[in-house]
């Protein structure tokens, strides 16, 4: 057995980033992700890396942009209002095709909202909260182990596709402590001939998104990005199907709400009700094909979110007979309840 340690989600992703070779972190404090910058400020100097507390989220994401342009593995983290401030930078990062990892430990909104866990930033994450035609990879961990494992994966995906990878957690996942087996480095190496390392023995490199002449070049860039997004959609969908094969009733969820759903599924199964759970591991690309298969036999599909209904749009776009899709959500930092999920599923049977 590998050695287990008890670790908080926010710290697990910090350590996992270091395991993945991240040596640069730029961020600005905001609850409930403050353990990430605190952890990185302690650990990165020990690894010869750089932690810098930026003067704002705007500065932090642009420091990430600069560090990524220089060829480094780099990360920033924040929570919902801070992620809103980073949207401009994320759009530029998409346009300049820079790899980086951005963590959003979601809290309740809109506005200052509250500091409890929430899933209200699904639209912002999967639709692109900044300006222009772009996408970013969105990973949705549900356990401390996944916070770590998906962080390691995120750095490889970012470098492979030259894209921002968002780790979309929530306040509960950030704060929860669970047993963790630290992931191993993947050892993958990505050449970065485009990085700004000085024009020695080569032509100057330029990192930019500006394409002033519309007829020739901006659409060209957008089409290049689109090809990349299509490739990612084809190759990188991830999900977990739990007891879905014979499921009469399918729950669809991600992150913390998927754990509550899993409990409901277990309890319903004990009562002889065939419930199953389809859990997203990538929110973009949305695992539509896997959901179509998992939902094939379901009489009803209950989408459960810690929001008032965002992911449900992707669920409806993905399944056959979308009139089967129903919704249960809590917002403002409240959690869906196992009993309420069970009550609704049982009500379908009548």
């Amino acid at each position: 057995m590998n050695e287990k340690i008890l670790m908080k989600g926010n710290e697990a992703l910090g350590e996992a980033a270091i395991i993945a070779g991240c040596r640069f972190y730029f961020g600005y404090p905001i609850t409930p992700q403050n353990e990430v910058p605190a952890y990185m400020s302690r650990r990165l100097p020990q690894e010869g890396g750089t932690f810098l507390q930026a003067e704002s989220e705007l500065a932090a994401i642009n420091m990430v942009y600069g560090a990524s342009a220089a060829g480094a593995r780099v990360m920033t983290s924040s929570s919902s209002p801070g992620i809103s401030l980073k949207q401009e930078g994320l759009s530029y990062i998409a346009g300049a095709e820079l790899p980086c990892v951005v963590v959003n430990i979601m809290r309740g909104g809109p506005g200052l909202g509250n500091i409890a866990g929430s899933q209200g930033d699904y639209f912002q994450s999967t639709r692109g909260g900044g300006n222009g035609d772009y996408r970013q990879l969105v990973l949705t961990p549900a356990t401390v182990q996944e916070m770590a494992d998906l962080t390691v994966l995120a750095f490889d995906l970012a470098d492979e596709y030259r894209i921002a990878v968002l780790i979309l957690g929530d306040g509960y996942l950030g704060q929860i402590s669970e047993a963790l087996v630290l992931p191993k480095p993947t050892g993958k190496v990505f050449e970065k001939p485009w990085a700004l390392t000085g024009a020695k023995g080569r032509k100057p490199n330029k990192v930019a998104s500006l394409r002033l002449v519309p007829e020739t070049s901006l659409e060209e860039l957008n089409l290049v990005l689109d090809e990349k997004y299509k490739k990612i959609s084809a190759k990188e969908c991830r999900s977990e199907s739990y007891l879905t094969e014979d499921a009469d009733y399918l729950l669809v969820a991600y992150g913390t709400s998927s754990r509550i759903c899993r409990e409901a599924v277990n309890e319903l199964r004990e009562e002889g009700i065939k419930a199953g759970l389809f859990r997203l591991i990538t929110a973009w690309p949305f695992p539509a094909e896997a959901l179509r298969i998992a939902s094939a036999k379901a009489k009803k599909i209950l989408t459960v979110e810690m929001s008032l209904g965002q992911m449900i749009e992707d669920v409806k776009l993905s399944v056959k007979d979308p009139e089967r899709v129903d919704f249960y959500g809590r917002s403002g930092g409240m959690l869906p309840e196992t009993d309420e999920i069970k009550r609704r599923i049982k009500a379908y049977g009548n």
């Binding site: 640069f24 730029f26 750089t50 810098l52 930026a54 705007l58 500065a59 932090a60 642009n62 420091m63 990430v64 942009y65 600069g66 560090a67 990524s68 342009a69 220089a70 780099v74 401009e88 930078g89 530029y92 300049a96 700004l196 390392t197 000085g198 024009a199 100057p204 490199n205 330029k206 990192v207 930019a208 998104s209 500006l210």
Partner: peptide, 19 residues
Amino acid sequence: DGCEASHGRAPAVATGLKR
């Protein structure tokens, strides 16, 4: 070598590059 920065953020981008 050259790098674009969004409006006003050149010092932050420069910080990342230099660090």
